[in-house]
Amino acid sequence: MEGVSASPSKKRKGHKHVAKDEEITVKIDPQLLHCGICADPLDNDGLVFQCANGHVLCSACAAKYGESCPDCLTADVSRCVALETIVDRLRMPCPFSAFGCMEFVSRAEKHSHELYCAHAPLACLVPGCLWSGPQDCISDHIRVDHGRLCGSQGFFYNKKFSIQVRCDGLVHLLKGKDGSIFALLVTNALPAGSMPGGSMLRVVRVQRGSAIGTIFEYDLEVKRGRSSMTLKSVPDDWGHHPSAPVAQQQESLPELLFVPRHFTGGTTINVDLRIRKI
């Protein structure tokens, strides 16, 4: 694997001193970083085992086969601290490098980096669309491929703004001044028994922009005459799992506003929305 870098430890006495933060770039066979039994990566939990004959096992295989190496049947299996240290200090390419990320991350940084990586692949917000790609490309995709059915507009945080969407609409993108992009999703709800049809509304955050650690809330209100329906909730991040069906992603998020068809009295819904930074 090209581009893997490692931080060497301090040399023994008599050798040239190496700065703690100095790094060298090396090439390494990726198979050396995988379990010799199940072939899974060794960086899942940082624990590495080895038998007396040098066969490397991950913690899952060590637990599964006990103290006996399944490769050579030796009973001498123990922790391999030296290899654990190497695995911990290696900085590997981001899992989303194929989508354009140039970062190298350690095992300890991998999880948090994946959560906030701007190149993490997202599924399209439009049901039935098979597109997936980096989050910083999804708004362009919707504008180009779904522009006739989806709208977009800018907004200011903490200020109420109005949106008119179709009852059978799909996505309305909302662009904040900090680069964050939210989306008002409108899902058509079919009649069930005696229940009237209608639309389900909710807000999700699609792109984080510069507001990486910020928590948001939103107030959503639909009015008709003196009557109104409201929802106060927290926008969930649109998931990083393009292989998951869009319907499944929507069903896993219960915070939504159901607007019956008879309440709107037409083919459009007038929505007042406020997105707040907490």
Results as ranks from 00 to 15, higher is better:
170 L>C: 09
225 G>F: 02
251 E>N: 15
98 A>V: 08
71 D>F: 10
83 L>F: 12
86 I>Q: 02
126 V>N: 00
54 G>R: 06
117 C>S: 01
201 L>F: 00
270 N>T: 10
256 L>W: 08
132 S>P: 05
119 H>V: 04
110 K>C: 05
257 L>Q: 04
133 G>T: 03
62 A>Q: 09
24 I>G: 13
231 L>F: 02
129 C>Y: 04
225 G>S: 04
34 H>T: 15
155 F>D: 05
74 T>C: 13
247 A>Y: 12
111 H>N: 11
29 D>C: 14
259 V>G: 01
171 V>M: 00
195 M>R: 15
105 V>P: 03
244 A>H: 12
5 S>D: 09
45 D>W: 05
153 Q>R: 15
262 H>M: 11
182 F>R: 04
265 G>K: 06
204 V>C: 07
86 I>C: 07
203 V>T: 03
235 P>D: 02
200 M>T: 13
131 W>G: 04
28 I>D: 05
167 C>F: 02
266 G>N: 02
124 C>T: 07
262 H>R: 14
218 Y>K: 03
102 M>N: 13
153 Q>A: 15
97 S>I: 06
127 P>F: 06
120 A>Y: 02
176 G>F: 03
136 D>E: 08
14 G>I: 12
79 R>A: 14
260 P>F: 06
113 H>Y: 04
203 V>W: 00
170 L>D: 07
94 C>R: 02
100 G>F: 06
243 S>M: 04
12 R>E: 15
10 K>C: 08
249 Q>S: 14
221 E>N: 10
194 S>F: 11
35 C>G: 00
164 Q>L: 12
163 I>S: 01
